[in-house]
Structure formats: C-alpha cells, structure tokens
Nucleic acid binder design. Structure first.
Length: 647
RNA sequence: GCCCACGUAGCUCAGCCUGGUCUAAGAGCACGAGUUUCGUAAACUCGGGGCCGAGGGUUCAAAUCCCUCCGUGGGCUCCA
C-alpha cells in the first residue's frame, strides 16, 4: 500500500527503549499495543498495561515522544493492580445495572483482588453477590472496549450529577486539576486515573468473595457503605489454584490448630482472652526462656510490677488523657484504680526507687508484663488480637548520647530473635502524630536517633508520617505470617516525655542531676500474638526446641511396657519432653495418633530393643532408625534443642 | 462500636430453604467397657453422651419461620 507508506514517512519518528536496553523507531502516535504486537503475539495477548517513562498507561496510549517502555502482564504487580482495578469497574457496572439507585464511590485494587464501596439502601446478600458475579461474566464475554477520555471538571460533574452519582461529584470537587480522566465501557463511565485493560474480555475468571460494611472516607461518623470484595484471574486454572491455596492457608489457622493440638482454647465466658492449656504453656514458656537467655547476654534486668495501679499514676503518665477509652478501671476501698494497659509507669516507679548514677546507664529493665486493653469487640481475633496479653516489654534508661549505642543494639537483638524463627519482616519508622505531647526539638532529636540507627545498619524501612505514639517516635517491626499478612510485633520507641512527667534523673560525672531518655521496646510484642503467628508459620510442626511434646514412647505390646517406661523416664530425667502411650491400642494406631499430633520423634521399643538396650526412632518424615543407643539419641536431641536448629 | 455470615454431642459436620416419621434429633472421630498383644499412619464388639448458643414471638406443631441478646469469623476503625 504505497499510500500508507507515504503517510508513515510523513510522520515524525520516535525511539522506544525496551527494558533490555534495545531501541526501536516507531512513527509518532503509535499505540503501545501496536508496539507490543510487534514484539510477539503471546505478549500482546497477556499484556495488561504498560509503563511509559515510568508512568503507568493504557495499552491504547499513543506514544508521542522518545520513551522507555515496560510491558506489564498479570505476573507483574502493576499488571495485577490494573487487572483487578478493571475488574472492580466491571463490578460497578454490573451493580448499577442490577441495582438502580445504587451509588458507587471508590473501588481500588488491593493486595489480593479488589473491592468497590457502594452506597445502597440495604446490604447485599450472598445471592446478590451471585447475581452480580453472573452479570459481570456476561459483560466480560461481550468484550466491551474500555476507552479513556479527558473531560473538564465541569463536564464530568454534569455527567455524574445527571447519573445521580453524588459521591463522584464530591470526588471531582476535591481534585485540583482542571481536567479529569474517565473510563468508558459500554454504557458505563467511571471517574478514574487508570490505567485499565483494553477491553472487558481480558477479564476471565471472576469470583466475588464477601461483603462488609465500610465507612465513606474510613470515618465512622460518615455513612456506612457496602464494600464488596472480589478477585479475578486471566485463567480459570489460576482462580482454582488460588481458592485451593486459601483453603490450605485456613487449614493452618492458629485457632483451629490450637484446638486440634490442645494448646489453648477460647470461651464465651471471657471473650477476647485465651485459655492456655498445658501444651500451649510449654510453648509459651519456651518463648520466655529464649528471651530470658537473650536478656542475660544483653545484660537486661528482669522486674515485675503490679497489674492494678492508682488513677493518679495514669493521670501523671498521660494515659488518662490519651488512652482512657481502652482502659479498664476498678475501685478498691473507694480509691479509683486502673488495670494497666502498658508497663511503663510501673517500670518508672522502680527506676525512681533509687538515686541513679550515670555509671548504671544504660539501665535495661525488662518485664514480662500482663496488660489489659478494652479493645472493641469487633476487632478481637484469636491470639492475634486479645484484651489480655503479655508483652516482652523492656524500658531502657540512658543518656541522650547513649541512644547511638542503645538503638542499634536493640535493632540487632530484634533481628537475632526473628532469625531464630526464620521470619521475614519489614520495618517502619513512625513520626509525630497530631494527638501528642512534648516540645518540637525533642521530637526532632528522637526521630533523628532512630533514623540514623536504621541508616547505619542499612535497614530498609518505610516512613510513616504522623503515625508515632503520643509520647515519641518509634520503629515498628512487622513479621510476615503464612497467609502473607503482616503483624506488628516488635517496636522500639524513644520517649523524652515520660522522664519529664515523672521527673526522672540520674547523677552525672559532674555530680549534677540530668534527665535520662527512656526507650520502650518489645520484640515478640505480645507473647500470645507471636505464638499464634508461630503456630501458623510452622503449621503446627514446631522445631524440636518449641515442641510441647518432643518424644512419644510406644511399647510394641504390653510385654514391653516396663522397658518403655524406663526409656520414658530416662528421657524426662534428661530434660526431654517425653510422653508414654501404653494404651492397649495397636502400634499402627498409636503411631498414627502421634503423627497427627506432629510430635518430632516417635520411639518404639519391642523385644529387639529391650534385649539390646536400644530404641527404634521414627522422625516426622517417617524415616526410621533401628538399634539406636538411648544415650546417643538424648545427646543429639539436647544438642538440637539447645542450638534451636530445625528438627 | 458498626456491617455481613455463622452458632446442632468434646471435635468435624448432616438435618433448617419447603415447620409434622431421616424414629423419643443423626453420622464420623474422640470417650468408656470388653475382646485382641500387635514391628511403624485407623483391629473388632457393645455403650454413655445434645434444654439444636440464650431469651422471647408466630403456629395445632419450631433445630427448622420472625425478633432481641450473647459468642465466633470476615471487614471498617484502632493496635501488641
């Protein structure tokens, strides 16, 4: 076609740079999609969106200048975002068709899937969700083109006002730009910055998951909206796989496993509180013991303070003003008292109990403190969120100069502890919130101390402006659990306020009084929560050092009961947590039971063992060893338990 | 606290939609008794066990329908 060729020649040419560094010339205004088709049909089919010079764009975007191009498929995070965001638009479209009068608000992609907040005069039922999902699938099949338009704010407002979408009008009003972008698919147009998939046919496997209440702008004072959650995938196979994974993840839910493994239970007689059974307590104590070992090495001193303290103390600490809603109160002999939600005031009283010298600093007072917080009933969640819990709390009293040494040392300690469990974690630095106390320069100094420590250790962290505690800035450590959720566990908080409030002092080398700095820190955070995370992390298959029962001893039959008992007792004597199962059940049955209990070692003794004074050992993988010397087994197990290596 | 879902033996669940013989509410596991005495993931027989979360209502009749409350799960908000 000579005509077209001439046209191409007439156009200005631009260079597109690909991720591998190669460059190619294209006529100006070539669509991203055309470029992608040139690369290969497979990529063109899988492409979801693209980034042009670092800016996320639609595949229909015309390239107008020299640009670096990266194509995003569903495999990329950006591609997933776009894919799910487009699915949320599709859902909004289906909802507006099926439920006249519904108003749509916002509908972003989230970590896993998407949601859309919708204002409707009643909650959606599971049946509604099915209808919406079915309609979405029909709309996807129609393969409607998704096109982007730039409208003036006025045009957009008129359009959404006409469609009776008041929330969209409000959102437009809040925007600074003169124009807004909208996306049109079929007869549905939504306010959106994009990008989006090129057509609804790209969206294949769709599943709506649940509906819940959510407030407009996240504020409980505002109207409650219907938040519908969903997820989608390019292929049905991927959705099936995802559903399977979800099921597997819920199989290791710590509430469920705790029940099955007889670790702990929950009772409606005390909502938000855990009842620890003997095996759960063994785990709990193993965690305490591990931390106490660290304390010995790091020269912490362990203290213990009362749970109930007078109201005046809480007024002085500032908790009365800042934390009252979450506290429990009681009256004893007509005196108002509070159940402690935190341990700092108690620790401070211990500090103040003596004249302190600079020679004592840094003074590290640790306390496994039992705290009670009146959490909203709706937020309670197994061991993850309780009303009563124990913190592995410590307060470090030091000079401002010593922060340079104390903070890095503490960060290192957190790292050591998490590593022992093979945990990944992320770090956040939170700065001064609105509802806070103290002079600006104190905040600046404290924040800098934390910042410097993180930088010095080259720790990657996320900055969270205004998210600090009311008394100081903090570093938070978030551990990643088996479901990919992150849980705040460790925290390091610098506090210049408490020492002021309680008039804490130490005598310096100049024989004068000085004000110490206080560092609050916890590593597990809450023993209970950490334990819950561990249960899910290990799916109940704890390493030897944590296993509530480390060894199960089984006599082959009644005839070998005496020998089994002697083996069992010797294990106990050696400090190994052993149990004997001499119930009359068959050996196979008892092996099955012990296996289901996820016990690391099963020891079977019969005629051969009794004669040779040996044992037969079976590990959790089903591997068997015969003729093992009991002493050798004990030595090996103890070594593993002490080293805290995986068993 | 607010929204949605759920609540039947110790545990996992069927029955509930469409009220009454799937028996006086079932099963499996667990538990108890007896038989079996066993070489690495379920021996056999028999038995006990439930105010169907609590309270109220509708009905001739409620595990089943309606309301309130309590609890649990998932969200919102907050947080260790």
């Amino acid at each position: 076609m000579p005509g077209k060729k001439a046209e191409v020649k007439a156009k200005e040419s631009i260079a597109v740079t690909f991720p591998d560094g190669s460059k190619k010339q294209f006529p100006k205004d070539t669509q991203v999609l055309e470029v992608v088709q040139g690369i290969g049909p497979k990529l063109a089919k899988e492409a979801v969106s693209a980034s042009l010079n670092g800016k996320e764009v639609d595949l229909t975007q015309a390239i107008q200048e020299n640009a670096a191009l990266t194509v995003h498929t569903f495999e990329h995070a950006q591609g997933k975002d776009t894919y799910w965001h487009s699915t949320s638009h599709l859902m909004a479209m289906a909802v507006l068709e099926l439920f006249p009068g519904a108003q749509i608000t916002i509908g972003p992609a989230i970590n896993e899937g998407f949601y859309y907040d919708i204002d409707y005069d009643r909650p959606f039922t599971p049946e509604d969700l099915q209808r919406i999902e079915a309609r979405m699938k029909e709309l996807a099949k129609k393969d409607l083109k998704v096109t982007r338009h730039e409208w003036t704010k006025k045009e957009a407002k008129e359009y959404f006002a006409k469609k009776r979408q008041a929330y969209k009008v409000k959102l437009i009003d809040e925007l600074q730009d003169k124009t807004v972008s909208v996306y049109e698919e079929g007869n549905f147009t939504d306010l959106c910055t994009g990008p989006h998939v090129v057509s609804t046919g790209k969206i294949n496997a769709i599943k709506l998951l649940r509906v819940s209440g959510a407030y407009w702008k996240g504020d409980a004072k505002n109207k409650q909206l219907q938040r519908v959650y969903g997820i989608s995938f390019p292929e049905q196979k991927m959705l099936d796989e995802w559903v399977k994974q979800q099921e597997q993840a819920s199989a290791r839910n710590h509430v469920k496993l705790g029940k099955e493994m007889d670790l702990y239970s929950f009772h409606e007689e005390s909502p938000g509180n855990a009842f620890f059974h003997a095996k759960g307590m063994t785990l709990y104590n193993a965690l305490l013991e591990f931390m106490r070992e660290k304390y010995r090495v790091k020269e912490y001193k362990e203290i213990s303070t009362p749970i109930i303290l007078k109201k005046e103390l809480w007024i002085r600490s500032g908790h009365w003003d800042h934390y009252k809603e979450n506290m429990y109160f009681t009256k004893i002999d007509d005196v108002e008292q509070a159940i402690k939600p935190m341990n700092c005031p108690g620790s401070i009283l211990v500090y103040k109990n003596a004249r302190r010298s600079y020679k004592e600093l840094p003074l590290k007072l640790a306390e496994f403190g039992i705290d009670h917080r009146h959490e909203l009933s709706g937020v309670l969640n197994g061991l993850f969120r309780l009303r009563k819990f124990m913190q592995d709390d410590a307060h470090i009293y030091c000079t401002p100069e010593q922060l340079k040494q104390v903070i890095p040392e503490t960060i290192e300690m957190v790292d050591e502890v998490y590593k022992a469990f093979g945990f990944e974690y992320k770090v956040e630095l939170s700065t001064r919130p609105k509802d806070s106390m103290g002079a600006e320069e104190l905040w600046t100094t404290a924040t800098k101390a934390l910042h410097d420590a993180l930088n010095a250790r080259k720790v990657k962290f996320e900055l969270r402006e205004g998210e600090g505690a009311f008394y100081g800035p903090k570093i938070d450590f978030h551990v990643k659990d088996s479901l990919g959720r992150t849980w705040q566990c460790g925290t390091i908080q610098v506090d210049f306020q408490m020492p002021e409030r309680f008039d804490l002092t130490y005598i310096g080398s100049d024989d004068k009084e000085h004000r110490p700095v206080m560092v609050h820190r916890a590593i597990y955070g809450s023993l209970e929560r950490f334990l819950g995370i561990l249960v899910e992390h290990y799916a109940g298959r704890f390493p030897l050092w944590l296993s509530p029962v480390q060894v199960k001893v089984l006599p082959l039959s009644e005839k070998f009961e005496d020998y089994a008992k002697s083996v069992h007792h010797e294990l106990l004597q050696s400090g190994i947590r052993s149990e004997l199962n001499d119930s009359g059940e068959t050996l196979q049955y008892r092996i099955r039971t012990a296996s289901l209990e996820k016990i690391p070692y099963i020891i079977v003794v019969g005629e051969k063992e009794e004669k040779g004074k040996t044992i037969a050992v079976r590990d959790r993988e089903g591997k068997q060893m015969f003729g093992v010397q009991l002493a050798a087994f004990i030595a090996d197990a103890k070594k593993k338990a002490i080293e805290r290596t995986e068993a």
